[in-house]
């Protein structure tokens, strides 16, 4: 049975995020209370996810390396985009990620966590510390083929060392078509990578600038609005059981053939997509 490998420190899996840094990522994204650039929304969501993974893998003796994590940007160039101590590294064990964010930003709270309404100007508690590992960038083209190629190189090396692990998960986040050629063959080549537990999982998250209805985890491409959407759909892996179960726990009711693909995602769709797409096995 595929996608059933135990994830442990001896057999970790990895998450590789490919983030579109093209010019158009400057445009605002749908959803949310106030206008926000797509690049910013993505950086926030992925940074928050890194934080979330760090907490979920924290045990009494520290953060366990159940995951190796990488973030590759593609825009003016293609390459890893960690800032700070981790700069230049492709895949980093989670314990190192957890210990070394590039910055601790002081952010205004997006929600009130207060049990009682605090009086205005009441000192502490107005901001929260938010760890970030990389910053939003938006200039250049969309060299998606380059990004897929780079991912393949990075993951081939990783797979040689982890032939029995749960297959790597690659999440590609983009708002437009590839500018360096047809990305489909590169996506296929990437999905061809395999461990004893199954093929690599490639998920595609497409962002909208307008207020179109997000389409999340569709089964068939019939209802997708255009060829570009259909192409991205075809490039996306079918969700393994545990991710589908996680989505269904959130009330999505997915079909068995649902793919890891979202089109016209707004802010909340990004969060939901990343949450479902990183639910591997039950962590303890």
């Amino acid at each position: 049975m595929a996608y059933a490998a135990e994830i442990s420190r001896a057999n970790p899996t990895c998450f590789l995020f490919l983030i579109d840094q093209s010019e158009s990522m400057k445009n605002n994204i749908g959803g949310g209370d106030k206008p926000m650039q797509k690049a910013e929304a993505v950086a926030d969501a992925v940074n928050r996810l890194l934080s979330e993974l760090s907490i979920k893998c924290a045990k009494e003796d520290g953060v366990r390396d159940y995951f190796h994590v990488g973030v590759i940007g593609y825009g003016a160039s293609v390459g890893p985009i960690f800032d700070g101590v981790l700069a230049g590294r492709d895949l980093v064990p989670l314990s190192e990620v957890a210990a070394q964010p590039a910055r601790l930003e002081e952010r205004a709270r997006s929600y009130s966590h207060a049990a009682t309404a605090a009086p205005p100007g009441a000192g502490p508690g107005r901001t929260v510390k938010f760890p970030t590992w990389f910053s939003p960038v938006a200039y250049g083209d969309t060299p998606m083929c380059g990004a897929f190629g780079r991912a393949r190189g990075v993951l081939e090396a990783w797979l040689a060392e982890h032939p029995r692990s749960f297959p790597p998960i690659v999440v590609n986040i983009t708002d437009g078509e590839s500018t360096d050629g047809d990305a489909a063959p590169y996506a296929l080549a990437l999905q061809d990578l395999t461990t004893a537990d199954g093929h690599l999982l490639l998920f595609n998250l497409h962002l909208s600038s307008d207020q179109s209805e997000p389409i999340i985890f569709p089964v068939q491409d019939r209802y997708l609005p255009d060829d570009f959407a259909r192409k991205l759909h075809r490039m996306s892996s079918v969700l393994p059981d545990q991710m589908r179960a996680a989505a269904n726990r959130q009330g999505l009711m997915l079909d068995e053939a649902a793919r890891g693909f979202a089109f016209n995602a707004d802010i909340s769709a990004i969060v939901q997509f990343l949450d479902v797409g990183t639910q591997v096995l039950e962590l303890r």
Partner: peptide, 8 residues
């Protein structure tokens, strides 16, 4: 890092 230490 100065963040609340969690165990999950």
């Amino acid at each position: 890092l100065g963040l609340p230490r969690a165990m999950s």
